[in-house]
Design a protein around this nucleic acid. Structure first.
Lengths: 343, 343
DNA sequence: GCTTGGAATGTTAGCGCAATCAATTTGTAT
DNA sequence: ATACAAATTGATTGCGCTAACATTCCAAGC
């Protein structure tokens, strides 16, 4: 009852209630409290209720840091995306978290940008938290990153890309295929002279490469490429398209994101070019505003929610297994050309 | 060199290199390795290099879970926002993380939606990680939430709202003031009959309340309110504005987000209403696409980057102090009416 | 030489929890 | 009642690290 003088607290203690405090109040052993909270099916109903009461009385908040250390399970999933400022990745974050939270996992978010260096740095600090799983955007990593991920022995889902050689699991789509599909779509519309405005990130570049390879295979079409820095923005799109249109006669401009395409659209309108008759415009991502622009933007739809959901499902399944074992399963969720009014 | 038979590993060990392994290889005490990695200024140059070498040899990745338990410093900041699917909050996440990462803090992201229940649930699991700091959206919390935050004794920044009575620190703006400013702006444009389309979240409701109070103070203006669920979307805006326009004769429609306003704009265009002459439209947030719509959307600009940055700065300052002490400082970063072509 | 003080390094003892195994209680069949 | 298994609870130990204190080292001063 009276704990005056009875509770010795070391100088290193944090002051808040611990498992042993709850145990004392409930009149059981600390281990029983642990079980009552984490594996209630292992304790009797009456004990569970007494512990529950003691938790309320003491205001106990479990310390999962200690729990993670003792059990080697952090219940933490690291989610590494380039940015959340892009609606595409925001959608992934939203769905991954929506799927993991109900299962008791929390998300350690990492914004890796578009450079391998940043990915390396962030991955190191992320691994130091001993996450139970990792969702990682992209599958072209530096050797060091690959090596660290392999030796970490953590369930991993690479997303938003496609490869024959995933580190573990993979949910995404082929950027080369997107580029080819866009090229074929525009060729079928009669476009032959292309401007490409692409962000300087590796996946956008692979879409460009796919586009170019399709032109070559078709044996026709000429293109001019302009790269822009990240993050992409309307002004970038407007500036680069102005440059392209000043210097070349073009049928279509293909952008690595919808927001760039919106800038191109603004530039076309300011020049009085009729879209798509005089200039076709193609975006990427099918952001929420793509359908709302005037004219409505043609683009490539990526189902970010599907990627996030399937990635989370794969990860949950693997994290539920007692032992680590590389899986190697791959899921291509594809994409869709959305043919609106700018092509 | 040869450690065969020399290294005993308990069955509970995780298998990867530990501090003691590095220490053995470097020929120093574990504590010295800890210092070499965390407080290199306390260690001689030669020792630091030997430890560095040993880290590389062993492939050691520090275990911050154990470190956090031992030091009562998690180097984790919890960031709780309603969603990242809104560009406004995505911007906050982006800037908060951008400011915290270089200082060695990692971010535990929590998506609390727009209900107090979810906030409570997520806050509990978040506190169990013993974060060194918390950034929390909004400042109208349930009693339980307030009590938990107070007893947690964690540096806290509430953002995206304004109150006289913050739990700790506060960086935001007044939603009532936004509502009033929008009302005054539209009244000055000659609008008198208003439709309001608002998300069913508490902050959007307070903007509505501010709007209504300004109408009352001005002694003129009538309004019709429609609430929509979250997340807001163009279809919601279109549907509710159709309803409003069918049933009432209106001068202006005010929306609780830009994306709703885009839906209203689409509906107005489909009805052949000239904007803003026959119908003025007002958004909220100044999302990237607001300026790109046709006609360009008038809206309210919130500087999410400023909120995120200042919140992170306040938090860093407080986390650097050795003892917890409630601060009570408040920063109103304001807002701006962006008068484009729909009002 | 010896002292002295600061820099560098080492030793000890937890942080708060859960895995593990031991002990006890309960229920059930004999 | 007794034996036995199952259900429930408890005691011990250690997860990997760092705070706190102890010790050693080395250069400078006398």
């Amino acid at each position: 009852m009276d704990d005056s003088g009875g509770t010795y607290r070391s100088s290193r203690s944090t002051g808040s209630a611990r498992l042993t405090d709850v145990a004392r109040v409930a009149g059981v052993a600390p281990m029983t409290v642990s079980r009552a909270l984490n594996r209630p099916e292992l304790v009797s109903e009456s004990t569970r209720l007494r512990v529950q009461q003691a938790v309320l009385e003491t205001g106990y908040v479990p310390n999962r840091v200690a729990g993670a250390l003792a059990s080697s399970r952090s219940r933490l999933v690291a989610l590494l995306v380039p940015t959340v400022a892009h609606s595409l990745f925001a959608e992934v974050v939203q769905t991954v978290m929506g799927a993991l939270s109900p299962q008791g996992y929390q998300v350690l978010l990492g914004l890796v940008g578009y450079t391998p260096e940043q990915e390396e740095t962030i991955l190191e600090t992320v691994l130091s938290r001993r996450p139970d799983g990792i969702v990682l955007t992209g599958c072209r990593h530096s050797p060091l990153t690959r090596q660290r991920l392999q030796s970490a022995q953590v369930p991993l889902v690479e997303i938003w890309d496609m490869t024959d050689d995933p580190l573990d699991m993979l949910v995404g789509f082929s950027h080369e295929s997107v580029g080819r599909a866009v090229a074929e779509h525009l060729l079928s519309r009669g476009c032959r002279r292309f401007g490409l405005i692409s962000a300087d990130d590796s996946r956008a570049r692979r879409r460009v490469a796919g586009f170019v390879s399709a032109l070559e295979r078709a044996g026709e079409g000429a293109y001019q490429l302009r790269e822009v820095g990240t993050p992409s923005s309307m002004p970038w799109g407007r500036e680069k398209s102005a440059e392209l249109l000043d210097q070349h006669s073009l049928d279509a401009i293909v952008c690595s994101s919808d927001i760039l395409a919106l800038g191109v659209l603004a530039e076309a309108q300011s020049r009085g070019l009729s879209v798509p008759e005089e200039l076709a415009i193609m975006g990427f991502g099918d952001s929420s505003y793509a359908a709302a622009s005037f004219p409505a933007l043609s683009t490539v739809r990526i189902d970010g929610a599907a990627i996030g959901l399937r990635a989370a499902e794969h990860l949950l399944q693997r994290m539920a297994q007692p032992t680590f074992q590389r899986a190697g399963q791959t899921l291509d969720i594809g994409f869709e050309i959305v043919d609106r009014d700018t092509t």
